[in-house]
Computed example of a mutant assay.
Amino acid sequence: MAPEEHRIVVLISGSGTNLQALIDAQGTPSLPDAKIVLVLSNRKAAYGLTRAQNVDPPIPTQVLALQPYLKANPGKTRNDYDSEVSKIVLAASPDIIVLAGWMHVLSDTFLGEVERENIPVINIHPALPGAFDGVNAIQRAFDAFGRGEIENSGVMVHKVIREVDRGEPVLVRTVEIKKEDTLEDFEQRLHQTEWGVIVEATKIVLESRGKKPSA
C-alpha cells in the first residue's frame, strides 16, 4: 500500500519564499509523504500564488482578502471573515496549517474552529521567542543590535495561539548579526535560515501527530 500523504495548507500574503521552501521539500526526505493541497492568500497580488500555480501539477490556490470581503458582504465583520477563512482551509482536509508570511492576525473565531478539528496551526516569525513580537521584527532587531542591546537574533516556528507570536516554539534557530552587516545582509541571512526552519518544523509537527505512513 502506498504511503499516506500528509495534507498541508499554507497561508501567505506576499512573495512566498517560505512557501517555495515547502514546495521544494514536499515528497523529499526533508518532508516525506507530504503534499501541499491548498495555498490561500489574503492578497490577490501575492507572488506566492504564482509559485503555487507554476508547480507541475499546479497547487490549488484561493484568494480571500479582508476589505473586498467586507465590501461585498455588508454587515459582515472581521470575525465573519476569519470564519470564512477557516471554512476554506478546513474544506481542504489538512493535517497541518502553516502560516508562511500570512500578514493577518487570526481571531478566536478561526482558532476555535480549527481547534475543534484538532488541526495544528504553526507560524514562522523572524525573531527569537519573546523578542520583537509582531510586525517589523527584522528592522527592530537590527536597530537593537546597533544600540548594543542584543548580540544576535533568530527565527522561530511556533504554535499559533490567541496572543500574537507567543505560542509554544516548535523550532528556534539563532541568526548572527555581524558588525559589518547592512540591514539587507542580515535580512538575507535570516531568510535563508527561515527556509530550512519552516520545513523542519512542519515535519516535526506532522510526525508528532502520530499519523504514520501506511505500510
Rank of each mutant, 00 (worst) to 15 (best):
M1A: 15
H6G: 00
I8N: 09
V9T: 01
L11I: 04
L11F: 09
I12H: 10
G16H: 02
G16I: 00
T17I: 04
T17H: 10
N18Y: 13
L19S: 07
L22S: 09
L22I: 03
D24P: 04
L31Q: 03
P32K: 06
D33H: 15
V37A: 05
L38T: 08
A45F: 06
A45Y: 05
T50A: 07
R51N: 07
A52I: 00
V55G: 01
D56V: 13
P57I: 07
T61W: 07
Q62P: 03
A65L: 11
Q67V: 11
A72R: 13
R78E: 10
R78F: 06
D80F: 11
Y81G: 02
Y81H: 07
S83C: 13
S83D: 15
V85G: 08
I88L: 15
V89S: 00
L90Q: 10
S93K: 15
I97G: 04
I97C: 03
V98N: 06
V105C: 01
L106A: 08
S107T: 15
D108M: 12
L111F: 04
E113S: 14
R116E: 14
P120W: 00
I122T: 02
I122S: 00
I124W: 05
H125R: 09
H125C: 05
P129Y: 06
P129E: 02
D133G: 12
D133L: 08
V135N: 08
N136T: 09
A137G: 13
Q139E: 13
R140S: 10
R140Y: 11
F142E: 03
A144L: 04
A144T: 08
G146Y: 06
E149V: 08
S153G: 09
V157C: 11
V160N: 04
I161Q: 02
V164Y: 04
V164E: 03
D165V: 06
P169R: 05
V170Q: 15
R173A: 14
R173Q: 13
V175P: 00
E176K: 11
K178I: 04
K179W: 07
E180N: 09
E180I: 01
T182D: 04
T182M: 03
L183F: 09
D185R: 00
D185K: 01
R189K: 01
H191I: 08
H191V: 06
T193E: 06
T202M: 02
T202G: 04
L206C: 03
G210Q: 08
G210V: 08
P213Q: 10
S214T: 11
S214R: 09
A215E: 14
A215N: 12
